[in-house]
């Protein structure tokens, strides 16, 4: 037979065809804000467990409509429930937002890399979330809180559009009530009743209580916001190889061989979606990469 060169098959999953989804049943649906919702689901097969690392995503298939990548937003320690939080931005998310308990979704994943929590051990951890960016960061925060003693100061900076767009309000308040977490929330604009901060999330960075020389930062949100945040963090003294961002590109296969998610030499689906800022800082400032 023809030789298939010296290819090393470093396959992640031996049994499943990567394009063949697993069926999940929706157990809970919650509207978080006017354009954002959360879906909770359980696997219909396979011993009922789903294991993932914070920062990873799934390719979610809605019958007849299509498939899109969405970050997992649940607790990694709860393997019986798969949680996704997403905004309605197109056909598939729109169709998803109309599903309810008992409906079925096709799930392929988890794909991608994860927030490097072991690099943060013994350091201050700053999580900066913008808008829906809080969703992919939430699993990291769950894990950090669960193993709180491994990290020094933990700071969450969260910026969103208006007070009505604040996600996971109850959880934010619970986290803020802890003595070992600092949580700062800001909005881009507010009506007079809001007693919290108003201003972009970058303005929170200069006065946040962390030691820039011993800090790991995880940043997630719209690309512009991540760039501004990274700049502000560097101004404060955090090195660009200690700042991690989560990128987003068009994905069709999610597993590295359809070519769509390329960002320069990187495949966002398999080299990312989480990147060290030093890796991508030259590309991210260029047009139409």
């Amino acid at each position: 037979m023809a030789t298939v060169s010296e290819i090393k098959y470093v396959k992640k999953d031996d049994t499943r065809d990567p394009m063949f989804p697993a069926l999940f049943e929706i157990k809970g649906f919650k509207r978080e804000t006017k354009d954002t919702f959360t879906v909770e689901m359980i696997p219909k097969e396979n011993s009922g467990k789903f294991v993932f690392q914070p920062g990873q995503f799934n390719m979610i298939y809605v019958f007849g409509v299509g498939e899109i990548p969405i970050s997992i937003s649940g607790n990694p320690d709860d393997t019986s429930l798969l949680v996704h939080t997403t905004r309605v931005v197109g056909n598939v998310t729109n169709a998803m937002s109309k599903l309810r308990r008992g409906d079925i979704l096709g799930i392929r994943g988890p794909y991608g890399n994860s927030w490097p929590l072991d690099e943060a051990i013994g350091k201050d951890v700053v999580l900066v979330a913008g808008g829906i960016g809080l969703a992919p960061l939430r699993p990291a925060l769950y894990k950090i809180v669960d193993e709180r003693e491994k990290y020094n100061k933990v700071v969450l900076l969260y910026g969103t559009r208006t007070p009505a767009d604040v996600l996971f309000r109850r959880e934010l308040e619970q986290w803020r009530a802890r003595f070992d977490l600092e949580v700062y929330v800001t909005v881009d604009r507010a009506m007079s009743g809001w007693k919290g901060n108003v201003g972009v999330v970058t303005t929170l960075i200069s006065r946040s209580p962390f030691d820039p020389h011993n800090t790991i930062a995880y940043v997630c949100g719209p690309e512009i916001m991540m760039k501004f945040t990274a700049t502000e963090l560097q101004k404060r003294g955090v090195n660009d190889d200690r700042i991690f961002i989560s990128l987003e590109r068009n994905m069709k296969c999610g597993v590295g061989y359809c070519g769509h998610c390329q960002f320069g030499p990187f495949f966002v689906c398999k080299d990312g979606p989480i990147f060290k800022y030093s890796q991508v800082k030259d590309l991210i400032i260029k047009w139409e990469v």
Partner: peptide
């Protein structure tokens, strides 16, 4: 073909369509 082998078979996930056709081919 050697280059495509790396793309479809050398990553963390393998494309079975290409893989099976490739494995059984005579060149």
């Amino acid at each position: 073909i050697t280059i495509l082998d790396k793309v479809f078979l050398g990553g963390p996930f393998v494309d079975n369509v290409y893989g099976t056709k490739r494995k059984d081919s005579f060149i």
